[in-house]
Design a protein around this nucleic acid. Structure first.
Length: 329
DNA sequence: TTGTGTTTTATTGCCTCC
DNA sequence: GGAGGCAATAAAACACAA
C-alpha cells in the first residue's frame, strides 16, 4: 500500500447490502441515456446499476455477449447467496472487469467532466454498484488513456506540419539551385554585352536604385524578377570603380516594383521594416543579405548578419558572391 | 489448447495543494 | 499531514493466430 493510503480490496459487506437492497432487475435494460441523465439528480432512487447482481441482469438482457461472458459464467457458478458474493468481491489478487454498461456509463460521465469530485464519485459508485475507489481508479486510468490519445494526435499534427515544411524546404532548395545556375550563366554572358553598350547603362542602374519599394520577399520574387536581378550583376565593376551614381535621387530606376526603395530605413517605404513583410526578421535579413549588394546599402551595416545561415530563404548566395552585382538590366 | 500481444484494473511511490 | 492526482508498473482478463 502507498504511504498512508488505505485501499479496500473490494465492495464491503455494508455497501453491498445497500446495493442489494436497491436491487431492481429489469432496470438494467433501460436506455443508457435516460439512466445517465436521471443518475445525478436522483441517483439513489433510480440507480441503473445495482451492484453485482444487476450485472447478471445485464447479461440476461443481452444474452450474455462478448466481453462479460467469462465474468458472467464465473459469477453464475458462485451465485449462491450473499456470502459467495462477498467472497467473489474479496478474492485477493482477482481483477473484476466492469460490465459494458458500467463502462458506457462511466464514459458518458467522463465526457461531461474528466475530473471526479468526491460527491460525484460517490454518486457514480452508488449508481454503478462499485466502490468509490474503483470509480476513482477508472477515471484515473481513463485520464491516462485520454492523455495518450492526445499525445498521439499532437504527434500526428506535428509530423504533418514537419512533412509540409520539409517539402517546402526541398522545393525552395531546388529553386535555389536553379536560380544559382541561372545567375552563373548570365554573369558569364554579361561582360560581353557591357563592352558593347558602353557607359549608357549607368543611368539604368540608377533607375533601379530609386524605384519605389516593395518588399523583396521570397513570395514576391518571381523567377523572372530574380533573373532580372541576376542579369544586372555585371554592373558591379562600374559601381566598384566609382562610376555609379546609384544614390542619385533624380535618377530613373528599375520599375518592376520589387527591388527598390530599400536604401533608407528611415523612409516609410523602407523595405526592411518588419511590418511590411510576412517573413520573420531573420528571413528578411537573409533576403536583404542575399539579394542586395552590401555596398549599395550603407545603412544595412547596422544589421548583424554574422550568424545568418545560407539556406533556401537567402537563395544560398554568400555575401561575397554579391560583389559583382549591380542594379540594371 | 497454447503462446503471445493488448487492454483493463489495480497498486505503488512520489508530488502538489490546501 | 491528509487527500488526491499522476506516472510507472504489475497482473488479470481478453483476443487471436497457429
Amino acid at each position: 500500500m502507498a504511504g498512508g493510503r488505505v485501499y479496500s480490496g473490494g465492495a464491503s459487506s455494508s455497501s453491498l447490502s445497500v446495493l442489494l437492497q436497491n436491487q431492481r432487475g429489469p432496470c438494467a435494460s433501460e436506455p443508457l441515456d435516460s439512466l445517465f441523465l436521471s443518475g445525478s439528480s436522483n441517483s439513489s432512487s433510480a440507480s441503473p446499476f445495482l451492484g453485482s447482481r444487476s450485472m447478471v441482469s445485464f447479461e440476461d438482457v443481452r444474452g450474455g455477449n462478448g466481453s462479460n461472458r467469462s465474468l458472467f459464467h464465473q459469477y453464475e457458478h458462485e451465485d449462491n447467496g450473499d456470502d459467495d458474493l462477498d467472497e467473489y468481491f474479496h478474492q485477493p489478487g482477482k481483477k473484476r472487469r466492469l460490465t459494458v454498461d458500467q463502462v458506457q456509463f462511466l464514459e458518458k460521465s467522463f465526457d461531461m467532466e474528466n475530473k471526479l469530485e468526491p460527491e460525484r464519485k460517490i454518486l457514480l459508485a452508488k449508481d454503478l454498484g462499485l466502490q468509490p475507489r474503483q470509480v476513482a481508479i477508472w477515471f484515473q486510468n481513463r485520464r491516462a488513456r485520454w492523455k495518450n490519445k492526445q499525445l498521439e494526435k499532437d504527434y500526428e499534427v506535428l509530423q504533418a506540419n514537419y512533412n509540409s515544411l520539409k517539402a517546402d524546404c526541398e522545393s525552395l532548395a531546388k529553386e535555389n539551385e536553379k536560380l544559382k545556375s541561372e545567375v552563373l550563366v548570365l554573369s558569364e554572358k554579361l561582360p560581353h554585352k557591357e563592352k558593347e553598350s558602353g557607359t549608357s547603362e549607368l543611368s539604368d542602374t540608377n533607375k533601379v536604385s530609386q524605384e519605389p519599394t516593395q518588399n523583396p520577399t521570397a513570395d514576391s520574387l518571381s523567377e523572372c524578377e530574380v533573373s532580372k536581378v541576376s542579369a544586372v550583376a555585371s554592373k558591379q565593376e562600374d559601381l566598384s570603380s566609382g562610376k555609379s551614381d546609384i544614390f542619385d535621387s533624380d535618377s530613373p530606376h528599375y520599375t518592376d516594383g520589387v527591388h527598390s526603395s530599400i536604401l533608407e530605413p528611415g523612409d516609410s517605404s523602407y523595405v526592411f521594416e518588419p511590418d511590411q513583410s510576412d517573413l520573420s526578421q531573420d528571413e528578411e535579413d537573409n533576403l536583404s543579405k542575399s539579394l542586395l549588394p552590401p555596398y549599395i546599402f550603407p545603412k544595412l551595416e547596422d544589421v548583424d548578419y554574422s550568424d545568418t545561415p545560407v539556406n533556401s530563404c537567402n537563395f544560398g548566395f554568400p555575401v561575397e558572391d554579391h560583389a559583382f552585382w549591380s542594379w540594371s538590366y
